[in-house]
Simulated scan of single mutants.
Amino acid sequence: MPSQDAALVRRQAARARALALTTVSTAGTGHIGADLSAMDILCTLYFGVLRGGPDDPDRDRFILSKAHASAAMYSVLALKGVLPEEELATFGGAGSRLSTVVSTRVPGIEFNTGSLGHGLSLGAGAALAARVQGSGRRTFVLTGDGELQEGSNWEAAMLAASRKLDNLVVIVDRNLAQKGASTEDINALEPLDDKWRSFGWAVRTVDGHDVDELLDVFRGAPIEESRPTCVIASTVKGKGVSFMERNLEWHSRRLTPDLLDQALRELEHGNDD
């Protein structure tokens, strides 16, 4: 894997974090903790993995099941040139197409999501459609760990394994947190890797902020022939900003201008190298 690929992803992730922070601060709303935990995953996919342009019917599909990480998604799409960067200032506003959960009003969004637990079902359908059509496209689905408490995920997991959909990759943003508490305090998921294996999936656990590791596993999918792939990405909610990291208050807390300045200074300092 060329080292410049990982370096590009890291640069774009730093830029996207700053955009997402500014976006939610301007709007006075959003889910910045989830945005920051998912950002390295999103940037790895969009700047190093996903194949095909928006008008290519055989393009790889990406589905953001944890749709409340919308500011992260829009920031990445802005860096890809799909959205005007200045449109981020309309996030969450009346009449804006940049709603606080993603929808197909925005270019580059494949499916409406927001009701947690449905993204994997959509992804299984998209992967099955590719199989029927004889297309080599792959489908990647990013879920939150808290939303795995929804039973629809496991119905989709059974279907994907029974149909041997090795063109399907689910990525679990395993930040161990949901609104109000730890996932393990609310409805424990562990042993999560064994659960996915028992449903017939090939599983790999990675550091969700290690771009080299993410590039390796995403580019190498499927990791087992005839099995869908589950990547459990261990992440930190609020990654990159010290006062947000692992702080459950930052699931959806308002980011004031003073705190925004502090966060942006930390990001700049952290990327001086």
Rank of each mutant, 00 (worst) to 15 (best):
T44M: 02
G117C: 08
S115W: 08
P54K: 13
V102A: 02
S96L: 01
G119H: 14
A67F: 00
S65A: 06
L42V: 12
L116P: 00
L116G: 02
F111Y: 15
Y74D: 08
T104C: 14
A71W: 09
G117H: 09
L83Y: 08
G92M: 11
E85S: 12
H68C: 04
L77G: 03
E110Y: 14
G114E: 12
T104A: 11
G117V: 11
V102W: 01
V82G: 09
A89H: 10
E86P: 03
S96K: 03
T90G: 03
D35W: 01
H68L: 01
L45G: 00
D58F: 04
M39D: 13
F91R: 09
K80F: 04
R59K: 10
F47H: 05
L120G: 10
H68N: 10
A67L: 03
S65K: 03
G52C: 02
I41P: 00
R51L: 14
P57Q: 06
I41R: 01
S103D: 13
S99F: 12
F62T: 01
L88S: 12
L50E: 04
G48A: 05
R105A: 13
V82H: 06
A72I: 06
A69P: 00
R97K: 15
T90A: 13
A34I: 07
H118G: 12
I109A: 07
C43P: 10
A72V: 06
G119T: 14
S115C: 07
L122A: 15
K80G: 04
L88T: 12
L50Q: 09
D60P: 09
K66Q: 07
E85D: 10
G123D: 02
L79E: 14
L79W: 05
L45Y: 15
M73D: 06
R105P: 00
A89W: 11
G119F: 13
L64K: 04
T90L: 09
P57I: 11
P107M: 04
A71T: 02
N112I: 05
A67D: 07
A124W: 04
G123S: 10
T44I: 08
E86L: 04
S75N: 00
V106T: 13
R61Q: 14
L98S: 07
M39G: 11
H68G: 04
G119E: 07
A71E: 01
V76H: 00
L83H: 09
F111G: 02
E86A: 14
T113C: 01
V49C: 05
I63F: 05
G117T: 05
D40G: 05
E110A: 14
M73A: 09
L116I: 09
E87K: 12
D55Q: 13
L36P: 06
V82L: 11
D35N: 15
Y74A: 00
A78G: 12
K80T: 00
L36I: 07
A124E: 14
F111S: 08
A72D: 03
D35R: 02
R105F: 05
E86Y: 01
